[in-house]
């Protein structure tokens, strides 16, 4: 579904992605784990078109994304839930969700909103409140729900667990693993390697802008090098 080949990206003169190869197949949950600063966010920003690419190709559902501006990518089925949530703080929870479905005007928007509220009941309770007043965990739920309102076939998730209490992290990872049943393919980027690998089918390990290991998630969790470097075991 999504194929990345030799992807390079830079901030000014400093290259931070030095040729990334990865692929995500339809129906999979794939995770990219790595330490802070490895380049995970930059990778997702390249995929969503909000960060310039300096080399390599991105192919999504058989078409290249080169030259496709960021605002056209959701319509192709590729939606990013960005690092730091980036919700519309001045708007209400419900308005945030409606904007998630900006591309759609049909009846399914209402139904999708119902589904989002079923997925995260707390959002239904707070639907008329300004999103900026939500707690960190609730904002993360809103960011994910808003992305899902865009009916992605592939969801790009950037560190949904960042800064959240373990119990909330668990809840969010449960929802992510449930997306499979809804037919949404997921590329999940995480520092929380253990949590991410537990729900993923396959994983990649990223270090300073390069993929250093890849394999089935279960194998990676069992790998002694990973256990030492990322799982603290």
């Amino acid at each position: 579904m999504l194929t990345v080949e030799g992807l390079r990206s830079r901030y000014g003169r400093i290259e931070v992605l030095h040729g990334i190869d990865l692929h995500v197949d339809s129906g999979e949950i794939v995770t990219v784990v790595g330490a802070n600063g490895a380049g995970k966010t930059t990778l997702l920003k390249c995929l969503s078109g909000t960060q310039p690419v300096s080399g390599g190709t991105i192919t999504f559902r058989g078409e290249t994304l080169t030259g496709v501006p960021a605002h056209r990518r959701p319509a192709r089925g590729l939606t990013q839930s960005p690092e730091g949530r980036q919700i519309f703080t001045n708007l209400t929870v419900e308005e945030n969700l409606r904007l998630g479905a900006y591309l759609f005007t049909d009846d399914r928007v209402e139904k999708d909103m119902g589904d989002a509220f079923a997925m995260f009941p707390i959002l239904r309770e707070k639907r008329n409140l300004a999103a900026g007043g939500l707690s960190g965990g609730q904002q993360q739920m809103l960011a994910m729900a808003r992305a899902l309102m865009g009916r992605p076939s592939c969801l790009l998730l950037d560190e949904p667990s960042m800064g959240l209490a373990p119990i909330i992290v668990q809840q969010i990872f449960n929802v992510v693993s449930g997306l499979k049943a809804l037919g949404v393919t997921v590329l999940l980027v995480e520092q929380n390697a253990f949590g991410a690998l537990k729900i993923a089918d396959r994983g990649y390990v990223m270090e300073t802008g390069r993929i250093t290991m890849e394999g089935a998630a279960a194998d990676l969790i069992a790998d002694p090098r990973i256990r030492e470097a990322y799982l603290g075991i």
């Binding site: 078109g49 909000t50 501006p69 605002h71 959701p74 990013q80 980036q86 703080t89 904007l99 591309l103």
Partner: peptide
Amino acid sequence: NNRLAAQLVGIN
């Protein structure tokens, strides 16, 4: 409110 988020939901 949030230019980046606006792009990510498909707003030009």
